[in-house]
């Protein structure tokens, strides 16, 4: 872990609905993540963990506050520049693997490279390396419908890392897996974080996953608090 700040979110406010029916989900959350740091965000269901991650990942514009990724204010730039920043600097892992069903695992993993404009050969080589790294070299030509949930999630992890981003945002990455697969994905994430000096911000219900993080935060009533006790949600 270094002192370089990869993510700096300040005073984020997010809500759903308008007028009297508006529900404030995130209320003034601030967060700094250093390079190589693994941060777990816990909180009960519906507390706004996914909303926070989407705001941090520049997928959803918060009503207030700023999100700076690698020194660049993500919401002060145009849509195309923001998309390019997401492509280069942020990897996403969702609760469900969300692989594109029409493409093989190899093609799914290579996709961020192709989106960036990288050549097909280089994209393929990178994807092969990462699939080997997550133990799926024998599944490269398989389609997502033919692999297990754990294999799908490992593929999603490989896809999140293929562009060698500065940070990975993982939304309940083990939430849909059984114990064995959950442990496998968790170990893999921690190894990859350590190997590449990559920052991870994970929203999770899992005590094990949260306890493996360098830092734990708790989202309560829309406010982000340091979780010194490591309470399970």
């Amino acid at each position: 872990m270094s002192n370089t700040t990869v993510l700096d979110a300040r005073d984020l406010w997010c809500s759903y609905g308008t007028g009297e029916t508006a529900i404030s989900v995130i209320r003034g959350a601030s967060l700094k993540v250093s390079r190589g740091e693994v941060v777990a965000v816990t909180g009960p269901s519906g507390s706004g963990k996914s909303t926070l991650l989407h705001a941090l990942g520049l997928l959803d514009r918060p009503e207030g506050g700023t999100v700076t990724v690698c020194g660049r204010n993500g919401w002060s730039m145009g849509g195309s520049a923001r998309a390019a920043l997401r492509n280069r600097s942020i990897g996403f892992v969702f609760q469900f693997h969300h692989l594109l069903e029409e493409f093989t695992l190899l093609e799914n993993v290579a996709m961020p490279c192709l989106i960036s404009g990288m050549g097909a050969k280089e994209a393929r080589e990178r994807a092969e390396r990462l699939l080997e790294r997550v133990g799926l070299s024998h599944r490269m030509s398989h389609f997502p419908s033919r692999v297990s949930g754990g294999e799908g999630q490992r593929t999603a992890l490989a896809r999140a890392l293929v562009m060698e981003p500065d940070m990975v945002l993982a939304d309940e990455p083990t939430g849909n897996l059984d114990g064995g697969n959950s442990n496998q994905v968790q170990d893999l994430m921690m190894e990859l974080a350590a190997e590449g000096g990559r920052s991870f911000v994970m929203a999770t219900h899992s005590r094990e996953l949260a306890s493996a993080a360098h830092r734990r935060l708790r989202l309560e009533s829309g406010v982000l608090l340091e979780d010194c006790d490591g309470n399970d949600t």
Binding site: G57, L59, G79, S80, A83, A84, R86, N87, R88, F92, F94, H98, L100, M111, P112, I115, S116, R159, M163
Partner: peptide, 10 residues
């Protein structure tokens, strides 16, 4: 949505 999260431009 997934593709846009990966950096697909509008």
């Amino acid at each position: 949505g997934v593709l846009r999260a990966m950096g697909l431009r509008p």
